[in-house]
Structure formats: structure tokens, C-alpha cells
């Protein structure tokens, strides 16, 4: 099964091994026809409707604005419905440095996103701390805080790279199963259990 999106041939993608691994996992687990078809339908909807959360801390956020503008026009793919409320967004584009003080806020935003939720680490700061890695007040990559689905390198990544990154996410959504089986949610659960939030009193 070749997973691709419209107007982009399968060979043009850079890292197909990852998707193939997911597909194999999917094949091994097997499923019945009705659930499988239903899954396909739902995944078609999910992968074509990724709404971002308006979340930006620094430079990358400005490129994200450019992404929405006429030249790169992410509306073509249906990503322009940027929601300001995390409850209504599907994925979070972590555009910019996450510093110590922002970490709790960032984690809370992630927790507030409604399932199924995804995270794209956009730019070198979000991936590893980037040029500020040695600083006393910068988180060294967001991978320790939330599970990340796609990494988009660059400082800041060009809008084209961001489009590519979100398209990769869309491919990933396509091969995930919504009903049971090879379920991302379980892996995510594992991650969250190993990174518990304490000290929340409400």
C-alpha cells in the first residue's frame, strides 16, 4: 500500500521507511472488512482536515503566518482553519523556542487538545534547543515534554518545508487505525504515563 497525497507521487517522499513500517504493522494486526472500510473513510476525513492551533513563540511563527498568506496558501490543503482554542484544534505546530517557564503552559495546551491530537516540532529550537541549547533557561527539545509526530528542521524552516511536514503528518494519520489495533493512542498513553504532571490542583 503506497500512502501518498494528491499531486505528490510516492517516490517523491523522502522518508518512506517510516510509513512502510506503520503499514506493515497495520497489515500484521489485521482487521475485519467493515471496520477496515469505516476506518478508511474516517481516516480520509481526518487526514484531509488538519486544523492547527495558533501557537507560536518566536521566528518560526512568522513563517507560519507566511504559510497562511497568499503565496503559500495553506488553505489549499484545508489547514487554514487555525483555531485559537486548543479544544478545537487537531495538531499543534510548535513554532519557536520553548523555554523553562513556557514548558508547563505548553504541556497544559497539549493536554487541552482534543483527541486525536498531533504535534509537529517546527524549527531547530523546538527539536533540540537550536542555537540556544546551551542556555540556562531553554528546554532541550520538546520531545521530553510531549510526544512528537513530525520534526521539521530549519531555522526557521521555509514555508515549503512546513507544508511538507504537515503533509507527512497527513500521511501518518492516513495509515493509523482509528478503531483499536495499531493504535497511536496507546503509545501516547505510555509516554504520558512516563511523564506525569504533578502539582496540578484544581
Amino acid at each position: 500500500m503506497e500512502v501518498t497525497t494528491k499531486s505528490m507521487p510516492y517516490e517523491a517522499w523522502k522518508d518512506n521507511e517510516y510509513i512502510e513500517k506503520l503499514v506493515n504493522e497495520l497489515k500484521e494486526s489485521g482487521t475485519n472488512v467493515i471496520v477496515g472500510q469505516l476506518d478508511k473513510l474516517i481516516n480520509w476525513g481526518r487526514s484531509n482536515s488538519l486544523w492547527p492551533l495558533t501557537f507560536a513563540t518566536s521566528c518560526c511563527g512568522i513563517e507560519f503566518v507566511s504559510l497562511g498568506a497568499a503565496r503559500f496558501d495553506m488553505a489549499r490543503f484545508g489547514w487554514e482553519v487555525a483555531r485559537a482554542s486548543p479544544r478545537q484544534a487537531d495538531f499543534m505546530m510548535v513554532a519557536g523556542t520553548i523555554v523553562n517557564r513556557m514548558v508547563p503552559v505548553f504541556r497544559r495546551l497539549y493536554d487541552q487538545l482534543a483527541e486525536p491530537k498531533y504535534v509537529i516540532a517546527c524549527g531547530s529550537c523546538a527539536i533540540s534547543g537550536g542555537p540556544f541549547r546551551k542556555s540556562y533557561h531553554v528546554a532541550k527539545g520538546i520531545e521530553d515534554i510531549v510526544p512528537v509526530d513530525v520534526f521539521v528542521p530549519g531555522c526557521p524552516p521555509r514555508p515549503e518545508a512546513m507544508i511538507y511536514g504537515i503533509m507527512q503528518l497527513s500521511r501518518k494519520v492516513k495509515v493509523e487505525k482509528f478503531f483499536g489495533g495499531v493504535n497511536r493512542q496507546e503509545k501516547q498513553q505510555e509516554f504520558l504515563e512516563s511523564h506525569p504532571v504533578s502539582g496540578v490542583n484544581d
Binding site: 521566528c59 512568522i62 523555554v99 503552559v105 540556544f132 542556555s135 533557561h137
Partner: peptide, 28 residues
């Protein structure tokens, strides 16, 4: 402070030409 990255401290450990690139990332 939600995006305080400690640039001034970082500059103290870098040579003069290296400190320049932080200027891009303040007011981009």
C-alpha cells in the same frame, strides 16, 4: 519571560563573531 532564552549569558561564552547570529533571533 515565556521566551527568555538567556542570550546575554550565552554571548559571554562565544567569540565576538559568533555572538552576531543571536541578533537575528531577537527582533526577527
Amino acid at each position: 519571560g515565556y521566551i527568555h532564552r538567556g542570550v546575554e549569558k550565552l554571548c559571554e561564552s562565544l567569540t565576538y563573531p559568533q555572538t552576531l547570529h543571536y541578533m537575528d533571533r531577537l527582533d526577527y
